[in-house]
Design a protein around this nucleic acid. Structure first.
Lengths: 144, 144
DNA sequence: TAGTCTTATTTCGTATGCGAAATATACGGA
DNA sequence: TCCGTATATTTCGCATACGAAATAAGACTA
């Protein structure tokens, strides 16, 4: 396999990732948010008062990126930054009432993503098992 | 499957896509380029004098994004924009000598990506066949 | 306790990435 | 030929995305 930019397997992962992203984006737009913003709201909701560095790690992103995502969520009044009481260098992030409402609004909306994920989960259990196994093999090669 | 942001299958695709991107990025950096720039050089090399819109389509991106990618490649003197002779609205893009050399430099470099793709291609043929089949099923659900 | 090292976050510069508006040109018909 | 419409590209505003530098505060040590 000489050509890095024309590999069937890699292209296959790319296509699925992009298609999923596109669907999720149209879902997010319906509540006036981006995918990243929505994902941040969700991650904050399951771990209120999370620190910035931990949130960035959980989102597999960097501190600087998440810092500016939070900026925009603060502008929209969906989250609040507070200085941590234990460590004045750190901040903790939590949802505002408005943020909780926005997340609920999304979760209660007819999400195309949810419907398609359900159909994917309805594929034969054997297929899904095999898929995840092969993915694991590929991931371990890539991480090696 | 209630939660869109915590789906094992989707996360699996995401992890592999991100890991591959990371490796390719470190390969690209060794020749002083980004992944997108390298990919553009490659796509132009296999289709010299390609038009911007066609290049954007082949790269599954948008005209505006690719237009600015080309800006930076022109700044680096790796590609040239020419007005199309048939249609003065259009431009055609081709590599400069320096661009061809840069691409060759990358192809001759010890690319980690190439090595890992080889190892992935060495997985049992049955696994790969099955993988691509299941990916097709998933993709058709997503595109439905 | 002053000086130094570490840690948490923000800021900065640069590169995608996208849709909408702007620009330039082509093309059709009156 | 003139006009309206269609097409190709660029520009603009905004949102990621990342590493490096800047900032601020905690922690450790001589």
């Amino acid at each position: 396999m000489k050509n890095v930019f024309n590999n069937e397997i890699i292209n296959s992962f790319y296509s699925i990732y992009m298609q999923e992203r596109k669907i999720l984006q149209s879902d997010a737009e319906r509540v006036g948010l981006t995918v990243v913003q929505l994902r941040a709201l969700y991650k904050i909701s399951v771990r209120p008062n999370v620190r910035l560095a931990e949130l960035a790690e959980r989102m597999k992103s960097t501190n600087s990126t998440i810092s500016s995502v939070i900026d925009r969520l603060v502008d929209k009044e969906l989250v609040e930054r507070k200085t941590s009481e234990n460590d004045r260098r750190a901040i903790t992030i939590c949802l505002t009432i408005k943020g909780e409402e926005k997340l609920r609004e999304f979760q209660e909306s007819k999400s195309e993503t949810v419907q398609k994920l359900q159909r994917i989960n309805d594929l034969p259990a054997e297929d899904i098992k095999r898929l995840l196994e092969i993915h694991q093999k590929i991931l371990s090669i890539l991480k090696d």
